[in-house]
Design a protein around this nucleic acid. Sequence first.
DNA 1: CTCACAATTGCGCAAATGAGGTATTTTTTA
DNA 2: TAAAAAATACCTCATTTGCGCAATTGTGAG
Lengths: 210, 210
Amino acid sequence: MDKAKDIKVMIVEDDDEIRDLMHMIIGKSPGYNCVAAFRDCESALKPVTEELPEVVLMDIELPGMNGIEGIRKLKEKVPETDFIMLTIRDDDESVFESLKAGATGYLLKDTPPARLLEAIREVHEGGSPITPSVARRVTNSFHPHSASPLSERETEVLARLCEGEAYNTIAERFFISGHTVRAHIKNIYRKLQVNSRGEAVKTAIKDKLI
Amino acid sequence: MDKAKDIKVMIVEDDDEIRDLMHMIIGKSPGYNCVAAFRDCESALKPVTEELPEVVLMDIELPGMNGIEGIRKLKEKVPETDFIMLTIRDDDESVFESLKAGATGYLLKDTPPARLLEAIREVHEGGSPITPSVARRVTNSFHPHSASPLSERETEVLARLCEGEAYNTIAERFFISGHTVRAHIKNIYRKLQVNSRGEAVKTAIKDKLI
DNA sequence: CTCACAATTGCGCAAATGAGGTATTTTTTA
DNA sequence: TAAAAAATACCTCATTTGCGCAATTGTGAG
């Protein structure tokens, strides 16, 4: 059997039953090859240079190093490899920290085997398989959430402020006087209850006002 | 026929053929009801209060107001409605501006009708249907930078700079002199080929150096 | 084992920038 | 129509910033 084109998969999962089950499912599915399975990140980090998996399925809750840190470490060794988080954790922090660490997929553990295999292929072909509820978290993270207390002009000015533009640059951009920019910024500070440029930028980003 | 549970869909698409085709497909599919179809956002903004669509399919390239601005405006009127971008545009700016404007789905126009219907249901049930290549853009947007030219300390300082902290605040945070912070910043400017705080922040965000 | 280079730390100065106070005109809303 | 909000503009001073100059340390090439 020609296995040259099989997708080489690695599993990091501490539950023996789940890991063995996944190993078996992947191993016996045509087009997939489970080249390694570990119960923790520490074990996975050593031999990873030999096997070179193309896709890694990673749990978050693991003994010792957690899966998020694990991805960070593994990604340094094999930057071409795609990582899929496979976890029961369905909360913002787990999701965003995983993505920031380098995961390109995020599936919950209730994902049926058929979908899991599809996801492995999907990520390997340049996609980004994500459980619907998690995908919603991601898109929501872009949405502006609270009603902004700022006027339109003030929001424009604040946006420029966050870009690091100087007062006079902003003034030129909007064809108004630097003094006017001053006044807008003063109002922004009052409305956001801050009193420095830095705090204003921080608040703007935190509350997605821009 | 009980249509109470049908998902009420609105279309904004300037191409007559495509719009009529989508209207027909959605209209004749059980469980879906196309309550409105417009060729531009301006037309859609007026009567939207009467029909109250649950899902809107929105094109980006439209005569007059573009679809991104259109979502922004529409979302103010019907905040409960879910928006799916349906466009040929497959670039970072279109994707992220759409999401920031309030879209929770993003499909390319080569999406087959069956998948489109599935996506409408998915978004209505709290998911976030996104074309694989676009989803990859989204997850990549969380990933860390390419190789940074900055040293560790410089990166730390730059991060604080992006938070809007003052030189002296940064100095205190790292238990070093304000003069040292300046020196680091000077080196950061040289390496990033910028010569002001604003540009440095912009570059840092653009290149994901932090 | 040097020597070179990058990283980190430090100082002073001149100029630009930022925050606070005040005020007028236009637009929106009650 | 009157009141409130938004947008516009000016002045001043303390702080911040960017730049030139320099010492120490660690790393790595020769």
